[in-house]
Design a binder for these strands. Structure first.
Lengths: 239, 239
DNA sequence: GAACTCAGTGAACACTGTTCTAGCATGAAC
DNA sequence: GTTCATGCTAGAACAGTGTTCACTGAGTTC
């Protein structure tokens, strides 16, 4: 920081302008800053002005590189899965390969705050993701399931992953600024709510209450993937 | 419409005020208007001012009945499934009962533009929905699957329904203001895109291309539900 | 050294959600 | 039948939003 960072006095505005940034603005730098802002502010408070502020740049400068806010979100979404590698299809082991794919997908979506929300709002058909989808399809087809089912399987699985992460993040967001203690209070509140429902009108809810709050998200996610994989497996014709 | 609907001249503003609406403003009327605005403008252009305009009322009047925009969305969401009835559990027929539940859920979410988006953004745990969830759980448990699986099944199924409808509505939204002809052009464009991928690098995509565009959404939805139900059924211990 | 290109600027536009003060019309109280 | 309180509603205002625009000024090309 030098004294040239100070704002120039008004009578001087038309003579001296701040020197342009040494580092030129690029799409990549904008996306970097956008992630920083997203993590700090969350989806609802994310704004182009915040991104510009983060970069120390005028808002309008962003629009030279990015068409609009939506395109910026798309760029962020596209980066979500870069570098992710899928293994070569192993027909004996396709179920575990798919489960691992799901786990890594969830991990990626948890890397940034509210990323699941952005992801859910975009159709995953960009050129950047094509090789990824290709390898996923390879694994499904290697299992021997009909092509029609394999085509559906990709959609089904990514809908599940994104949907699960979205719900997860909404709970996280709701209790974001709570300390451990109030969170524990809230937890027992929810538990009590289900436990104290009239058992004659809600016998099933009361019976299932423990499973709804006790189980960890990790376990629930795993169970969901297993149900999906079993359903897919049921379509593989016996040899 | 009478001449009293004309705006009063400025010099008269402090004497004559427009008579208050004969029909008092209620939450229900606001939600009605909100749905009208949503259908006309879509989620992105939905605003409190538009709702007020629709009712012929000042914006601030809305805030007497509704805490904020988010609560209004919640009210809209809560209304989505009112009146929907689930049958008594029939253990021999639980699979068809669940499928019917899914179909009706999709139909409801398609009743209003962008409703899937609102639905996805809300956690379905409101008092209004409790009896609904209770009956759904009753059906799952009647099948004989473990309680842990049944608890997961509800989440899994509604995630699928909402996710499917969301993706469906995004495609719909994207091609909303296209006529039949340009839509058909776009369709073949997509088809060609997949067909013209280099077959050595994308053998699976090329092979699956027909299934990705040809199948109707209805059929795809049905297939997805069937995969889910089969996965759930695999957890039922043999008698 | 002059001409040109173009990323970046600040101001502006047309909106948004939300809050505030203040006034109207209705019901109850006397 | 007048007064009072109360609940709804209006209008203006605040602080913010995405996006556009004419205009700089540094760097490159001729």
């Amino acid at each position: 920081m030098s004294e040239t960072d100070l704002p120039s006095p008004p009578w001087d505005r038309n003579r001296r302008r701040p020197a342009p940034a040494k580092v030129p603005l690029t799409r990549d730098r904008i996306v970097d800053a956008a992630y920083t802002v997203l993590d700090r502010e969350g989806y609802d408070r994310f704004s182009m002005r915040q991104v510009a502020l983060e970069l120390g740049v005028a808002v309008s400068a962003l629009y030279v590189h990015v068409a609009n806010k939506d395109e910026l979100f798309e760029l962020m979404y596209n980066r979500t899965f870069v570098g992710e590698e899928l293994p070569d299809p192993d027909p004996e082991n396709w179920q575990e390969q798919i489960k691992e794919f799901a786990r890594r997908g969830r991990a990626r979506l948890r890397q940034h705050r509210d990323l699941a929300r952005i992801s859910m709002a975009h159709i995953p058909f960009t050129p950047e993701l094509l090789p990824h989808v290709e390898r996923l399809m390879a694994i499904f087809r290697s299992s021997g399931m009909p092509d029609l089912v394999a085509a559906m399987a990709g959609d089904l699985l990514s809908t599940y992953i994104e949907g699960f992460c979205l719900e997860e993040s909404m709970w996280l967001e709701r209790y974001r600024d709570m300390d451990e203690e109030t969170w524990e209070t809230k937890r027992t509140e929810i538990m009590n709510y289900f436990a104290e429902l009239p058992p004659d009108r809600f016998p099933n809810m009361v019976a299932m209450a423990p499973y709804m709050v006790d189980e960890s998200n990790d376990y629930r996610f795993e169970l969901g993937v297993d149900i999906l994989v079993r359903g897919l497996a049921s379509y593989i014709p016996a040899r």
